[in-house]
Simulated scan of single mutants.
Amino acid sequence: MKLKLSVVDQSPVHGSHARHQAPSLTVELARLCDELGYYRYWVAEHHDSIHFANPCPEILVAHIASVTRNIRVGSGGVMLSHYSPLKVAESFKMMATLFPERIDLGVGRAPGGTGLTSSALAFPYQPLHGDGYAEQAQLLEGFINGSLPDNHPYSRINVLPDSRPAPELWMLGSSGGSAGLAGHLGYNLALARFIDPDNCHPSIFAQYRDEWTRAGHEGKPKLMLAIACICAETEEEARLRAGTAVYRKLAAQMGQREDFLTPAQVQDRYRDLPPSLQAEYNHILGGYTVGTPEQCWDEMRALAKAFECDEMALVTVTHSQADRMESYRLLAQQFS
C-alpha cells in the first residue's frame, strides 16, 4: 500500500521564538514540507490560546498556497459552528480558483476555544455550540458543489460566476461522532487520533464507509488518519522532545494553563508528580508515535494497515521550531 504523508499544523507558540513569530514559523515549515514532498499541509483553528496561534485558517491557507508550489493546502479545520456556510464557501472557492487543484476545506464541530470566545465570535447573537452543525455542513456542501435542490431558498445564489473550481471537502472527527454525517453528506473523513487515541478505532472508518455506500455516493471516499508524531535521531531524544506536548495535555487535564515547557523542565516536573499522574503521563505518551525514523515508520505502517487508510497526517508539537522541522525532515527522508 502506497502511503501518502501529510501535515496538520496547529501553529504552536514555540518557546524558541517570540510569540508573534508563530504564524511565520508555520509558513517556514510549510515551505520545507513542500520541498520534502509531503502531500497536504493543513492548518488548524484555535481561539484565545497561549499554545496555538492561528484563529483564522483561511488567511494562512491562502498565504501558504501562494508561497508553495506542489503541496495541497487546506484547513484542518474551519470550526464551522462559528461561521456562515456561504461565507466559508465563498472564501474557499476563491482560493480554489486562484490555486487550482490544491485547496482543501476541512471542517469540524468543536469550538476551538472557550465558551467565552464562542460567545464573542457569535456576538450579537448566541453561539450555536454545534447544535446546527449538521444543517450547516449540508448547506456548505450545497454551496461548494452547486448541489442545492431547485426548491431550496438559496439555490439561486452563485458562489462564483463559474461553479467549477471547488476545494476538496473534508470533515474532521476524533471519536466517531461525525463519521455517519460525513458519509451521508459525501465528505471525505479525517480522523484525529492525536486528540483521543483511546477512542479512535478502525470501526469509525468502517461506519463511515457503510454510510457513504448507503447514501449512494459515487466514487471512493478519501480517508486520513492524523497522529501525534515526534521523530529524532534516537528514541531517547524523541521521547525527551515529546515531553513538551505530552505535559501540555496532562496539564490541561489538571486544569492548568501555562506556556510550553522545555523538555528539561518537563522531566523535572515529571519527577515531582505522584505515581498516578506519572502513569497518566506515560499513558498519553503511549498514544503518540515517538522514536527514530525507522520506529515511527513501523508504527505508521501498522496504523495504516489497521485503519485501512492510505494517508497519514502528522501533528508535531515541540518546544523548539528546529526540533519540529527536524522531525518532518527525518520522516520524509525515511519515506523516500
Rank of each mutant, 00 (worst) to 15 (best):
E58Y: 06
T318K: 02
F143E: 05
G106K: 03
T26E: 14
G76R: 05
L105Q: 07
V246C: 15
R248F: 10
A252M: 13
E168F: 11
P221M: 11
R31D: 10
V290N: 00
Y41K: 03
A306H: 09
L80W: 01
A238C: 07
H319M: 06
V67Q: 07
P55W: 02
C200K: 11
E258I: 12
E233C: 06
G287A: 15
L80R: 02
R164W: 10
A134L: 10
G108K: 04
L277S: 02
E237S: 03
G219M: 09
S175Q: 02
A122Q: 04
C33H: 10
D272K: 14
E311A: 00
F260N: 08
E211T: 13
L330F: 01
A134G: 12
R72N: 07
G115Q: 14
S174L: 09
L160N: 03
A44T: 12
S49L: 01
M94E: 06
G142A: 04
D298E: 11
A232I: 00
N199C: 01
I227S: 12
N199K: 01
L240N: 09
E326A: 08
L36E: 09
Y125W: 15
G76K: 04
N188V: 00
D104C: 06
T114L: 03
L98G: 04
N188M: 00
S24L: 15
L250I: 11
F205G: 07
H152Y: 09
L36Y: 06
V8L: 15
P263Q: 08
S163E: 11
G177A: 05
L303F: 05
H184F: 15
T262H: 06
S155V: 07
M94P: 07
M254D: 07
I230R: 05
M171C: 04
A306G: 08
K249M: 12
I50A: 08
V266D: 03
A242S: 13
R257M: 13
A190R: 01
L223R: 13
K305H: 14
Q278F: 12
N54D: 05
I71Q: 07
A22C: 08
D131V: 14
Q138A: 15
A96K: 00
W297F: 14
S6H: 04
E141F: 13
I284F: 07
K4E: 11
W170T: 02
E45C: 02
N151Q: 02
